[in-house]
Amino acid sequence: MTKAGAIWHRTAPVLCILILLLAVWYAAAIALNAAWAKDKAARADKQLTFSELVSDTMAQEKPLLPAPHQVAQEIYKTTVLKKITSKRSLIWHGWITLSATLLGFAFGTALGIMLAIGIVYSRAMDMSVMPWVITSQTIPILAVAPMIIVVLNAVGVSGLLPKAFISMYLSFFPVVVGMVKGLRAPDHMQLDQMRTWNASSSTSFWKLRLPSSMPYLFASLKIGIAASLVGAIVGELPTGAVAGLGARLLAGSYYGQTIQIWSALICAAVLAASLVALIGFVEKVTLKRMGMLQ
């Protein structure tokens, strides 16, 4: 198969499904918004033809399900046409969420790596901390988010940090689990080799354990950053809808602005996808330079 053929072979089914999804979306928009359109027409004593009905369901102000092009228009309006400093700009809101996400992700990754090193090097820590790390994830931390925000606000910590704290809690777990696996990835033969060279435990950490944990680290980072973003968005809910993508969601749901909700949602999805893609890119470059990727 040629190269172009191979790409087509891989993308064609995805495109098909995407087009199908778009079609389902339009159909659902017509079906869900029809009731309101008919209601409006009945009050105005008018009979709607089918084409009038369809065009009305596509252009409502507060539709039950906005049509894709309405959402696209809204996104275009709030990103390109608005100034970035304006409070209506999605880029401004997205940046606030992104900064909390990145801060929390950095904290979470640091905490996760430190815990993992402790767990790998100390048996006592392995036996006592590891079960609790796992239990900590069965606690729905997102549910606790409002409390953390309110409490930290009361102590005088506000702004980015409370949100970053929630992001940190969500992102440290995949990093711990992945890094513990990764730092233990070198087999006995390699560890014995280090011992033969009389390497100190810090040398064998820097030259053997850390490099061989890299693929595991990047796999965890991809999960961690997605979790961080979710944490930052949920962390914005209880602050009274001031700023950020989460605030746009909440404000939209208060005032029934469905188009605003969907545009914030799509913006969050694009943000998540680009963050994961960015880490994937860094992973590829790093592993290539380390010679771990052909």
Binding site: H9, R10, P13, V14, C16, I17, L18, L32, L64, L142, K222, I223, A226, L229, V230, I233, V234, L245, G246, L249, L250, G252, S253, G256, T258, I261, W262, A264, L265, A268, A269, A272, A273, V276
Partner: peptide
Amino acid sequence: DFLKRGLLPIGNFVAALPIIGMAPILVMW
């Protein structure tokens, strides 16, 4: 095989999205 090649990349993509953001819409519905 067609569904596998079409749906799996989308599934992997969606699994990383902040789906919780759908909550206000579903509460509305």
